[in-house]
Structure formats: C-alpha cells, structure tokens
Amino acid sequence: MSRFGHPGLLIGGTLTLLIAAMALLSLVWTPYPPDAIRIAARLQPPTWAHWLGTDHFGRDMLSMIMVGARNSISVGAVAVGLGMAVGVPLGLAAATLGGWTDEAVGRLTDLTFAFPAILSAILITALLGPGAVNAIVAIGILNIAVFARVTRAAALHVMARPFVRAAAALGRGPLSVTLVHVLPNVAGALVVQATISFAVAILAEAGLSYLGLGIQPPAPSWGKMLNEAQTFMAPRPTLAIFPGAAIALAVLGLNLLGDGLRDLLDPRIGKVSAKR
C-alpha cells in the first residue's frame, strides 16, 4: 500500500475530480443544448458530431450526461448539506446534554430508520409531487438521521478522552467544551461520512429519477436517462450504458475517496460510521 501511496485515494480523487470538472464545465459549455430536441436526428450511434450518440428525441447524450452530473451533484450536495446542518447539531446536543434530549434524538433517528429510505421518498413525492426539491427533502431527511447518529457516537467517543474531561473539570461550560474540543475532533469522521453520504445520495437520486420521482424533464438526470433508455436498447444499447457507467463511476469515485480519507484521518473512525 505504501509503495503506491494510496491507490484507492488516488483513483477515487481522480474520478471525483473528473466528474466535478465535467459538471463545472457544463455551466459554461456543452457540445449542444441538453434539451434541444431534433426528432430527425434521434437514436444516433456515437459519431464525431455526437461523441456519445443521441437519445430517442435526438438530444446529444454527452451534453445530457454533463448536465446530469451537475444535477446529480447539486441534489447530492444539498441533501448532504441539509443532513449535516440539522443532523450534526442534533447529534452534538444528544451527546453533550444526554438525558431527555438524547432520548428524543434517538427516538427521531429510530423513527427515520424505521422507514426504508425509498419508502419515505415515495410517500414524500406522493404528497408533494415528484421533483428535484422533493427528492432532496427525501434524501436529506435520511441524512439528518445518519449524521445525528454518527455525530453522537463520535462525540461520545471523544468526550470519554481525558483532555475533554479535563476541560469540563476545569469548569468550562458544555457549549464551550462542545465547540472547542468535541466538534474539531469529530470533524474528521464527519468529512468521511459526508463523502460516503454523497455517494449514497447520488445513487438514491438516480434511483428516484429512474422511478420518475426525482429530477423532472426537461432537466437531464442520469437516472431518468436510464429510465428512458429502457425500451430503446435494441437500436441503441449505448443509451443505457453511458448513464449507467456515469452513475457507477461517480459513486465508486466518492466511495474510494471517502475510504481513503478515512484511512488518512483516522483508521478507527470507520467503526462508528453508519454507512448506507
């Protein structure tokens, strides 16, 4: 492992950077507008004009995959951000305050985990209608519970360490102890969890969009492209191969990155992360 540095980290970082770069580039340039429908040019194989071919509406696949990367990343980032923004304070409060607060947070996370994520997503979209925002809400709610649980476990672990006990013994208030000593020491675990949650969120978004519950037309999304490809695979199998590969590579990259970071930051953290 040492001779090659960390191959997982390297591969993961490279994949993640590539996907991110593609998404960023799509903000300023795509080969074609991703929603330009040209029925006459539909179902073309990969050519010089269309590197990845065209879909059943004659849209350029490469452009759609580029913008799809942006959409996937946005949904994932906001969902994970939502999970952290709410989940981390909840987890810290549960760990430091204990008692009734701990019980309440534990109950809420239990409640969330009692519903399979896809079930919550289905119910939420049945309620609010399908759409990117609702997909974010559905994935975000799950992440709140994940981050609350991970933060609590990591914080309890840190709080048992002598320097934190010493600080508390010296009369520092719980808020100060939490912010000064606990939070910085759980940050590593949170970064790792964020990377992995990001991968899960991308997979979840793909699944929801595939079910027709996520990102809505005309905005492109990898999951939706797979859905649309399903009956056109006879003339054009690449329609399903490229978006599927994009999903798998993005998730693979983020997971490898997360694992690499974990190894770098603290080999012991892995034990508390509630992966997936």
Partner: peptide, 13 residues
C-alpha cells in the same frame, strides 16, 4: 419502470 429492455439489448447483441 425499473427494468430495461433486456430483450432489445439482446437483439442488439
């Protein structure tokens, strides 16, 4: 919708 046109791909292959 969760299944792709395997038959179609099959033909393609």
């Amino acid at each position: 919708r969760l299944s792709l046109a395997v038959g179609a791909l099959l033909l393609a292959l």
